Computed example of a mutant assay.
Amino acid sequence: MKNSINDMALFIKIVENGSLTRTAIALDMSLSAVSRHLKELEQRLDVCLIIRHAQQFKMTNEGTIYYQNAKAIMKSIDELEEEVRGKGVLRGNLKISTTHGFGKKHMAPLLAKFSKMHPELRISLSLLNNLSFMGDSIDIALMVNPPKNDNYVMDVVLKDNYVIVASPDYLQRTPEINTPSDLLKHHCLCLNNDRIIMNKWSFYLDGYENNVQVQPYLLTDSGETLRDWALAGEGVAYKLSWDLVDDINTGRLIQCLPHLKTEQLELCIVYRKQRNQPARIREMIKFLKANILNSLS
């Protein structure tokens, strides 16, 4: 078993260095020793893992499979040793991703608080205007209505509805909004996510759906920019309420058609299905579930 683990570690180094010579230099080994270990590994597995000639260094299909699985195994070993050695102290790297507006306003303060609780943990927050998938380097993502994927767990932490809002100044100088069809007379501020213009605004009354196809006056892929335009009196915005609670409560924005039910979306904590989830990921998920709702109030 020990030799197998050492062989995996060496093979990973060979692949990532891109040559036997560079690997030998990096590990302070002789080139012949590196070559011998690789040859013995291939003989034991009875496959060729790397095609190596004077002008060629390329993994075979079997080599790619071995590398990917060896990488995962070595990562699990590192995480196990880290967790046991830590005895309750969270260490290592934790990468989290979410949308720009939600991350800046709600996630950043929560992660700062969690970091103070676990000072030996290195937390990285990646903010994107649109987050429609979870990259391989991300440990946890906060996503709205994530696409179904059997390789991931998707825990719903919040359900939120869209609201129609505009500034008092804008509403004073434009026609009244009493029905969804009145929106067709207004400057409508729309999101443009993944090249899809979100200009179909949905309402529900007496169990029936009423969709209004508005004409975009201004388009953006940023929820923050959409809010800024609404505050500046540029038009009417259709946006999830969690970003607008303070603006509505203070009167900076007025909710239009509040008696009508609108489309509802789910905010999910997304993470990979994994038998032995590292403690830092488990604890962060637990922390987010306990604190996200409070951060929105």
Results as ranks from 00 to 15, higher is better:
Ile5Pro: 00
Asn6Trp: 04
Asp7His: 01
Met8Leu: 10
Ile12Arg: 12
Ile12Thr: 08
Ile14Tyr: 01
Glu16Arg: 10
Glu16Trp: 02
Asn17Asp: 07
Leu20Glu: 01
Thr23Lys: 11
Ile25Met: 11
Met29Arg: 14
His37Asp: 11
Glu42Phe: 06
Leu49Met: 05
Ile50Trp: 10
Ile51Trp: 10
Gln55Asp: 11
Gln55Glu: 12
Thr60His: 06
Asn61Ser: 12
Glu62Arg: 13
Ile65Arg: 12
Met74Ser: 02
Arg91Gln: 14
Leu94Ile: 06
Ile96Cys: 04
Thr99Leu: 07
Gly101Gln: 10
Met107Ile: 12
Leu110Pro: 00
Ala112Ser: 13
Ser115Tyr: 03
His118Gln: 12
Leu128Gly: 04
Asn129Phe: 03
Gly135Pro: 03
Ile138Lys: 06
Ala141Arg: 06
Met143Asp: 08
Asn149His: 12
Met154Gln: 15
Met154Phe: 03
Gln172Gly: 02
Arg173Thr: 11
Pro180Met: 07
Asn192Met: 14
Asn192Phe: 04
Ile196Phe: 12
Ile197Arg: 08
Lys200Asp: 13
Ser202Glu: 11
Val212Gln: 11
Val214Ala: 06
Gln215Asn: 13
Pro216Phe: 05
Pro216Val: 06
Tyr217Ser: 13
Leu226Glu: 01
Tyr238Lys: 05
Asp243Met: 15
Leu244Gly: 05
Ile248Tyr: 04
Thr250His: 12
Ile254Glu: 07
Gln255Ala: 05
Leu257Glu: 02
Leu260Glu: 00
Glu266Val: 02
Arg275Ile: 13
Asn276Asp: 10
Ala279Trp: 09
Ala279Gly: 00
Arg282Gln: 15
Glu283Thr: 13
Phe287Asp: 07
Asn291Cys: 11
Ile292His: 01
Ser297Phe: 09
Ser297Met: 13
